[in-house]
Nucleic acid binder design. Structure first.
Ligand SMILES: Nc1ccn([C@H]2C[C@H](O)[C@@H](COP(=O)(O)OP(=O)(O)OP(=O)(O)O)O2)c(=O)n1
Ligand SMILES: [Mg+2]
Ligand SMILES: [Mg+2]
Length: 985
DNA sequence: ATCCTCCCCTAC
DNA sequence: TAAGGTAGGGGAGGAT
């Protein structure tokens, strides 16, 4: 709990959650489309000889016109055909679309269709001819659509940055050399040898994650451990001595207990600071003796990042406004014109602090504003780990059916324990809490329920330092008034969608049928929601299964300037992953690289010191020939993947490497060398009665070599991982003056890019797969288990696998090979002139072009001139294949490629896509959608177009053509900025 | 139907 | 200053 804000962090742009919200709206629209289609019946043959193609915004919308054509015997061309389309329907005719039409193409306003139907005859087109550049501002959208989108965008309010602040921030003139200020470095050099360990040493989320993994391993190792359960034994004694112990459960009733430490980090921290008990305290990296505000760093734009928080909280939610922990909408009282509140996060705050509105994950600056008396204390990770170890030692002495939820939290299935002892569940909880208090000095709270969900919700009621039980019979009443967000597994996006459906509380959610929920959320999720809101949860308490992935990410402090630095960083990160694979005793076969890239419209300097700021992410992965733990192999792939992404180095803000398709190093059935040693081995014994009955030493494992068979073929794929959904065009959502500044910033960025010429480039990159012909063999295991050092130090250490080594250095040293990959950097851009695409761009998931446009327009001054009773109308958005949404247009692209994959693409179709995308750029300013459509197109081409003959070549050409055409418009509109686009191989 | 890939979402 | 990691559940949609 309290976890509301913490993952605002990851999406400080607010898009991730916007995604679900937007998606909900899109679904609604799609539904309306469907209904409309269902009603289509031919009522006349009025347009027998007419074939229309709708371009741009129209009223009625393209889909509605499509229906009308169907009803009146006409044809509707999703794609413009210069030979068979008789009429192009459009409300205006910007240069962008006019130039792609055949000469003398009739372009008429949509009213021509409507009026002709009214008159039941085809009217002359003259009065409806659209003049080039004529823009009809009096468009009206049709019923359902405008209301839907109009309602929805009221949540997206204008972020009213104060002009003076923003302009100061963005003013480049004040900061003569942005690049220098960046690399010279207040931010520690990303390439320092100790960067990774320094970062992880301080990252609470890293610890949280690794501890959970270790604890899950530990718990798993207990399953077959037939040692005594001291806690259980004590309860049995209790039950013998007391006749009152006859608690029973219904035949199939379970008894689940959830135990969670109170404000864990703070509680542990206060053990050594008893004088602070009773005062509001928070754990943060922000030094306690420095002010909660810092001097504004030049080049940053706190408002820019804060605006995302604003958007987030504008969306409907069952939460109070307060729950957005990092809503910084109210200007910090303590900040003055040249200071900004600290962006350091609070990992945990105690209940005294929470009464002032503080939440875990909140920024310290904001917290200090809410609670001026707040006392900051530093992290003490060793102490947390120690407390965690004690907690789990206690828990596992009661039952082996426990599930590690986190370092301060676990689920216990105490059904058997209750049945055996007859002890009241609440008594068990009291015992456990008491022992936790004794051993750790910290308070734990507990929840008891007939299932996991109710137990967890009960815990929240019990907190702090308490417990609560919800019985089967109380469940319905207990859950009724809870906001849906309180249901475990229902987060921000899901809650928003539910609220859209009218279900803010569980009681309201109960009124929605399973069928509707399943349709809306999918089968499993729909059923889960249906059950959860009734207090039903069938999940069992289980120890986690085999790990499916091992990864290392750093999305903080990444400020690189040269390709060598990137290369070095990737090697270091690969070594980290290699280490983790070794520790997990697995080998991996698929490498995935994830990068966060500064969005072109985000300031070069992030508001949060070292933060990733407003970014989009890209991932690209490659299936290796064989399983590996070799850091050189991983690094080589990572570099190769990075190269293929052509990322502008200075815009990198986050990098991650993930290994999947794991295979255990151990033979089946062999006991793993669990990390329990770390948790239990050194656990100090207390009294016999309170000592967890786990014999650590008995749970050891021998490494066993495993043959690795090479079966899979190497393959590369691209993941378009939308880290965030964003429903409004960034630029458009801003007031004009601020947008101009942003555009200036774009220019500056472009200029910087030209200066540095530091893109990764793929021009020299050659697939490494061919060199990977040998296999890991049994020898690899031995090497692996002995190679405790970093893999990258291999030059001085035994090779993990001589065969791997041999292959990776086949053409010289690995380093040399890597170096060669980057040899041409710097000039490649000029060489590859036709494609000026440097990067993929936007992420967004703006899944509803029309709505976005509408939101956009709402924020534009000119629309303030509309009549008062007229809400801003949504002009018909650009459409592709009749689709007006991002997902719809991507679908259209998919269909197109799928249909035509057997042959070369037709120019008409290509033009259609070009027109659509250009309109998105020129009219909607929806670069996110453009980017997504291009990504889809690229991926479809790569995956489904036949590789035989020249067909693939023509598709690649088509892609490049489309990209170039789009870039033309982007450059025109954004002063020579080039849209980042994933290059086609 | 079921599996696979590429995502989104959630939790601490 | 600040340390925004990481793994799993599952849905959409295509392949089999
Ligand atoms: N955004 C967050 C949330 C949690 N944590 C860490 C610090 C917490 O102390 C610990 C446990 O998380 P909980 O959700 O259990 O929160 P607390 O234990 O702090 O408070 P409580 O459980 O009493 O609500 O995880 C964190 O670093 N960042
Ligand atoms: Mg807790
Ligand atoms: Mg917890």
């Amino acid at each position: 709990m309290g976890g509301r804000g913490q993952f605002r962090v990851q999406s400080d742009d607010g898009w991730a959650s916007m995604g679900g919200y937007m998606a909900a709206k899109v679904r609604k629209l799609d539904q309306q489309f469907e209904e409309q289609k269902g009603k289509e019946e031919t009522v006349s043959s009025l347009f027998e000889n007419v074939a229309i193609h709708v371009n741009g915004y129209t009223s009625p919308t393209a889909d509605q016109l499509k229906s009308l054509m169907a009803q009146h015997g006409g044809r509707y061309h999703a794609y413009y055909s210069s030979t068979s389309t008789t009429h192009v329907i459009a409300s205006n005719l910007p240069r962008a679309k006019a130039k792609d039409l055949r000469p003398n193409q009739k372009v008429v306003k949509p009213e021509w269709i409507v009026d002709s139907i009214k008159a039941n005859s085809i009217l002359p087109i003259q009065p409806y001819i659209v003049a080039a550049h004529g823009v009809d501002k009096n468009q009206r959208t049709i019923s359902g659509f405008s209301s839907t989108s109009a309602n929805s965008n009221t949540e997206v309010d204008v972020p009213c940055c104060s002009k003076d602040v923003t302009s100061d921030r963005n003013s480049k003139s004040e900061e003569p050399s942005l690049n220098q200020s960046k690399s010279s470095g207040k931010i520690p050099a990303t390439t320092d040898n100790n960067f990774l360990s320094d970062f992880y040493k301080h990252s609470r989320l890293h610890f949280l994650s690794t501890w959970k993994t270790e604890l899950a391993d530990f718990v798993r190792s207990l399953v077959n451990n037939p040692l005594e359960l001291s806690g259980l034994q004590k309860l049995e004694q209790l039950s013998k001595n007391s006749k009152a112990c006859s608690y029973s459960l219904a035949s199939n009733e379970r008894c689940i207990m959830h135990v969670d430490m109170d404000c864990f980090f703070v509680s542990v921290g206060l053990i050594s600071r008893p004088h602070l008990i009773g005062q509001p305290v928070a754990v943060t990296h922000h030094s306690a003796d420095t002010p909660s505000t810092a001097k504004q760093r030049p080049g940053t734009d706190p408002e820019f990042e804060r605006n995302y928080y604003k958007k987030k909280i504008k969306r409907p939610s069952t939460d109070n406004e307060e729950t957005s922990s990092n809503d910084v909408s109210s200007v910090a009282k303590s900040s003055t014109s040249d200071t900004v509140p600290s962006f350091s996060e609070i990992a945990s705050c105690n209940y005294e602090a929470r009464s002032a509105g503080l939440k875990n994950g909140m920024f310290y600056g904001k917290a200090k504003d809410l609670c001026p008396d707040l006392i900051a204390i530093p992290y003490d990770f060793e102490a947390y780990r120690e407390a965690s170890r004690k907690l789990y030692g206690i828990l596992c002495s009661y039952t082996r059916t426990l599930e590690a939820v986190s370092c301060d939290e676990a689920l216990l299935d105490v059904t058997q324990l209750i049945l055996q002892t007859g002890v009241e569940p609440s008594t068990v909880a009291e015992h456990i809490r008491q022992r936790v208090k004794e051993e750790t000095g910290c308070n734990a709270s507990a929840g008891i329920g007939p299932n996991i969900a109710l137990a967890r919700m009960a815990t929240r009621v019990g907190k702090p330092n308490g417990q609560h039980q919800v019985t089967e019979s109380e469940a319905a009443e207990f859950i009724k008034d809870h906001p849906v967000k309180d249901l475990p597994g229902v987060g921000y996006a899901t809650a928003s969608r539910l609220v859209e459906l009218g279900a803010a509380t569980c009681g309201e959610l109960q009124k929605i049928s399973v069928d509707v929920l399943k349709k809306e959320f999918g089968n499993k999720t729909g059923q889960k929601l249906y059950d959860l809101c009734r207090g039903v949860d069938k999940r069992e308490v289980v120890q986690s299964k085999e790990r499916k992935s091992v990864s290392a990410d750093v999305n903080y402090g990444i400020r690189l300037t040269t390709i060598d630095e990137v290369k070095t960083f990737l090697k270091n990160l690969s070594a980290e992953v290699s280490d983790r694979l070794n520790k997990a005793h697995v080998t991996g076969k698929k490498v995935t690289l994830k990068v966060m890239v500064r969005r072109p419209d985000a300031p070069l300097e992030t508001a949060k010191f070292g933060g990733h700021g407003v970014c989009h992410t890209m991932t690209r992965s490659k299936n290796l020939d064989k399983f590996t733990v070799d850091c050189d192999v991983i690094a080589k792939e990572a570099i190769s993947l990075m190269t293929s992404l052509k990322v502008n180095v200075s815009d990198l803000r986050g990098i991650g490497i993930q290994m999947t398709q794991l295979k255990s190093d151990f033979e089946i059935g062999e006991r793993r060398k669990s990390t329990m040693e770390k948790f239990v081995k050194s656990r100090p014994s207390v009294q016999p009665s309170t000592t967890p009955a786990v014999d650590v030493e008995s749970v050891t494992a021998e490494s066993t070599a495993q043959e690795i068979k090479e079966l899979d073929q190497s393959s590369t794929r691209v993941e378009e991982n939308k880290q965030s959904d964003f429903s409004t065009s960034f630029l458009d959502a801003l007031p004009d003056d601020i947008r101009r500044e942003v555009e200036q910033d774009l220019q500056a960025q472009k200029a910087a890019l030209e200066r540095t010429q530091n893109q990764m480039t793929s021009s020299v990159h050659s697939e490494s797969a061919s060199s990977m012909t040998s296999q890991n063999t049994a020898t690899s295991k031995t090497n692996r288990s002995s190679s405790r050092g970093r893999g990258r130090k291999r030059s001085t250490a035994p090779k993990k696998s001589s065969k791997v080594k041999k292959t990776s250095s086949a053409g010289g040293s690995p380093n040399k090979l890597i170096t060669e990959m980057f040899k041409v950097v710097g000039k490649s851009r000029l060489d590859e002139k036709p494609v000026k695409i440097d990067l993929t761009t936007s992420q967004s998931s703006n899944d509803d072009v029309g709505d976005k446009v509408q939101v956009t327009r709402k924020l534009q001054p000119e629309f303030e001139e509309l009549p008062v009773d007229d809400r801003p109308r949504s002009p018909s958005p650009p459409s592709l294949g009749g689709a007006t949404t991002t997902s719809g247009s991507r679908d259209a692209v998919r269909r197109w490629v799928a249909e035509c994959a057997g042959a070369s693409p037709m120019q008409d179709d290509i033009d259609e896509i070009v027109t659509f995308l250009q309109l998105l750029v020129v009219e909607s300013h929806n670069l996110e959608c453009v980017s997504l459509v291009l990504r889809t197109l690229r991926r479809c081409i790569m995956s489904s177009v036949s590789r035989e003959g020249g067909i693939i070549t023509s598709w690649v050409k088509a892609y490049d053509f489309i990209v170039e055409k789009v870039q033309e418009e982007v450059r025109r509109l954004y002063d020579d900025i080039t849209l980042y686009v994933v290059p086609i191989t």
